[in-house]
Write a protein that binds this DNA or RNA. Sequence first.
RNA 1: GGCCCCAUCGUCUAGCGGUUAGGAUCCAUGGUUUUCAUCCAUGUUACCGGAGUUCGAGUCUCCGUGGGGUCACCA
Length: 436
Amino acid sequence: MLRFAPSPTGDMHIGNLRVAILNYLVAQQRHERFIIRIEDTDKARNIEGKDTEIMQILEKFALKHDSVSHQSENLHMHQMFAAKLLEEGKAFVCTCTAEELEIHREKAKEQKIAYRYSGQCMDVDKKELALLKENGIPFVVRIKKPSTQIINHDLIKGDIVTSPNEVDSFVILRTDGTSTYNFACACDDMLSDVDFIIRGEDHLSNTPKQMHIKTQLGFTKETIYAHLPIILNNEGKKMSKRDDASSVKWLFEQGFIPDAIANYLLLLGNTKAPKEIFTLPEAIEWFKLEDISKSAARFDLDKLRFINREHLKMMKDKALSSLFGFADENIGKLAKIYLEEASTISELENKIKPIFTPKQFEGEWAEQMRIMEKIIADAPMIDTFDEFKSYIMEKSGLKGKYFFKPLRLLLTGAEHGPELSEIYPLIKSYLLEIAS
RNA sequence: GGCCCCAUCGUCUAGCGGUUAGGAUCCAUGGUUUUCAUCCAUGUUACCGGAGUUCGAGUCUCCGUGGGGUCACCA
């Protein structure tokens, strides 16, 4: 069982998307189920509607899933598990206040050592719980730190050993009774029998904590972990919301298509890809998680542009034309010609749109354009560009650049562009509309 | 600062003890194109440093250095 567990606290991040794609891919390869779990336990940071937005993006990438759930629905289960740990003496009640902890934290910072929980509530008798509740004294529940080191045989990062002190006795239930991330995550993974976890490298230090929780809860099934190296921005820092390219929404707005984005994300850090341009279904055939490089990779927009163009080239003509509001194979073919000088849908749009918008009869060539417009309006339907060219030339008496420049302007709305002889056959059925 | 991870062209990477260190992208130049581009050809650019092991090290070991991640009652 695999899962994708995003939190609805912001725009879908490119790193999250990569995690989703990889989980889906591995689920397909292993013929296992793939579920979505929205991690909405932080009520304050949840943003209304982000969950559906995430689902829409998954839809666009055709990442089929078996079910969707919200983590908050499982709260009572988390509390039950916490009570079990408390009962078995594997967790304890802690009444340290935020202020007290803050003092310890600052002290640790001054001494330049890592902050660790003092352990001062560790031996509080569980019978006191009732008393605390009775008197309305706020408390949290902490799990006792492990007694031995924890080893994670990470599929990508290799064996990672963590000492008990690094895991620490951390909070699993907050003052308000809700579960913290690590606890909720471990419980839910356990409950849905998730045994293959692919996620970002930033979760590497959470892994021993979650392994510890599951062990204490008596879950013996071995979970395979794979931690993906993070994606860096141009400055070599972790991509954050500040980086435009980190937002999937932004990439869509820029005119990148899902197939290309998925291709790029799968290629990033991949050491054994048999080719550079491929689709997700193709990648399912050969992709190996173990072949992902251990080191972080920079996001390179130029490379994405290249891949996007290649995928645009592979699109069916009619489908491509629909991106510009047509259902005409010829317009798709026209767009492909313009792919010579464009890499994204929006760049393509900037080339195609001027062809179909009324022309500006001004500037150096205005007079010649007027002449040609009139000739075309009265001309019969002409099949080939050669005949068309001869016809206009003869009627107008123009030649050389005094002929080609204004003709190009009249037909395409641009001074430069692909060969008119290639464009003409594709737009001739719209000629009257265009040449005006 | 503690812990953990990483280190080959600007970028993504190949290399798994002996190579003229390869590919892709980007960039530059030339040719083709009555335009810009495409296309074709060509080219610039890389093994973080230092010890050690070895006949021989980008490749193995150690130590530096650099970069990154993470250290919450966030996820």
